[in-house]
Amino acid sequence: MSFRSPKPALSRSPHRQMMAIEPGDNDKLKELEGLLTLDGTKFRYFTGVSRPELVCPDSYVLDQYYLDLPGRKAAQVALLLDYRTNPPQYPVGKPG
């Protein structure tokens, strides 16, 4: 089974790109929402898996069921947009 990212532009460096998205950037927000579709959920389950036939479909279908409940995608997008505030809180360099 071969699976491709629903939005290749975000999949190359998702963390850095998420940090650059502004809350009012509707095009980028649509890309983020694309990661929360069934295709995006499958992408997360199958990326880097050497034996995709061992991935139980129940797992990603159940995850998607809960993502599709009212208000869940908006909450996930809000968390993804808030990610940019996290890295600056960590010290640079070696601890101690």
Score class of each variant (00 low, 15 high):
residue 64 Q to I: 00
residue 45 Y to G: 08
residue 65 Y to H: 12
residue 25 D to V: 03
residue 16 R to I: 05
residue 82 D to I: 02
residue 61 V to D: 01
residue 37 T to N: 07
residue 48 G to S: 03
residue 71 G to W: 12
residue 57 P to T: 00
residue 10 L to E: 06
residue 16 R to F: 07
residue 41 T to R: 02
residue 80 L to R: 12
residue 8 P to K: 00
residue 62 L to P: 00
residue 15 H to W: 09
residue 28 K to Q: 12
residue 29 L to A: 02
residue 60 Y to W: 05
residue 66 Y to V: 06
residue 19 M to Q: 07
residue 67 L to K: 10
residue 49 V to Q: 13
residue 60 Y to G: 00
residue 87 P to L: 08
residue 34 G to K: 02
residue 13 S to I: 05
residue 56 C to K: 14
residue 32 L to T: 01
residue 11 S to F: 09
residue 5 S to W: 12
residue 59 S to M: 09
residue 36 L to Q: 07
residue 79 L to V: 07
residue 24 G to A: 10
residue 35 L to T: 00
residue 62 L to G: 03
residue 87 P to H: 08
residue 72 R to S: 13
residue 83 Y to R: 08
residue 55 V to P: 05
residue 9 A to N: 09
residue 83 Y to L: 14
residue 78 A to E: 14
residue 43 F to M: 05
residue 77 V to Y: 11
residue 77 V to K: 12
residue 17 Q to H: 11
residue 37 T to V: 03
residue 13 S to Y: 08
residue 10 L to G: 04
residue 51 R to V: 13
residue 76 Q to S: 10
residue 20 A to H: 01
residue 24 G to F: 15
residue 45 Y to E: 10
residue 13 S to T: 03
residue 40 G to F: 08
residue 72 R to H: 12
residue 17 Q to N: 10
residue 7 K to C: 13
residue 20 A to W: 01
residue 23 P to E: 13
residue 55 V to Y: 02
residue 14 P to Y: 05
residue 69 L to P: 07
residue 27 D to P: 00
residue 86 N to F: 15
residue 63 D to T: 08
residue 15 H to M: 14
residue 27 D to R: 07
